Computed example of a mutant assay.
Amino acid sequence: MAVSFAVRGEYIQLDQLLKAVGLVGTGGQAHAAVEAGEVRVDGKVESRKRAKLRPGARVSFAGEEIVLVPDA
């Protein structure tokens, strides 16, 4: 089941998202996961640690899926 995450503003960086939802404890762990090819955005492996993610994007990591939605 996917978890919704409200994006404040225009976008959130991938590393910040992974920390915000608690899938990693530090930015270093987020960077390592991205470098290892463990993070997918919209079904494709994402190699940019600071990729700008906008509402509508789907992020998969560690068996979890996060769907970005606009902040109401």
Rank of each mutant, 00 (worst) to 15 (best):
E35P: 00
Q13K: 15
A33E: 13
V69M: 04
G22A: 04
D71G: 00
D42Y: 04
G56P: 06
A62I: 02
A62G: 09
V7E: 08
S47D: 13
A36Q: 12
G56M: 03
V59W: 14
A62W: 09
F5M: 01
A6M: 04
A20Q: 15
A72F: 09
M1N: 02
V24D: 07
V21M: 08
L14P: 09
G27K: 08
G56N: 03
V45K: 08
D42T: 01
T26G: 10
E10R: 14
R40C: 04
A57I: 00
G22F: 04
Y11D: 11
V59H: 12
E46I: 01
L53M: 04
L53E: 08
D71K: 07
K44H: 13
A2Y: 10
M1F: 01
A51F: 07
G22S: 03
S60V: 10
K19I: 14
L17Q: 11
V45Q: 06
A36P: 06
G9A: 05
M1C: 01
P70I: 00
G9I: 04
R8H: 05
R8G: 11
M1A: 07
D15N: 14
R58C: 08
R40G: 00
A72G: 12
R48E: 13
V69L: 10
K49F: 06
A57T: 05
D71L: 02
G27Y: 12
V69S: 06
Q16I: 12
V34P: 03
L53Y: 11
V39C: 11
K19Q: 15
V24Q: 12
K49N: 13
A57N: 14
G63K: 10
K19N: 06
D15A: 12
E35L: 13
D15C: 02
L23N: 03
V41A: 02
Q29D: 15
V59M: 10
H31E: 15
Q29M: 15
V39R: 06
L68E: 09
I66S: 02
D42M: 01
E38W: 13
G43F: 03
S47A: 14
E10A: 14
F61G: 05
G43K: 01
A51V: 01
V3K: 11
A20C: 12
L18F: 12
R8Q: 14
E35R: 15
K49D: 11
G9W: 09
A51L: 09
Q29T: 11
Q29I: 11
A32L: 13
A20V: 07
V34R: 06
D71Q: 09
P70K: 05
I66T: 10
L17D: 13
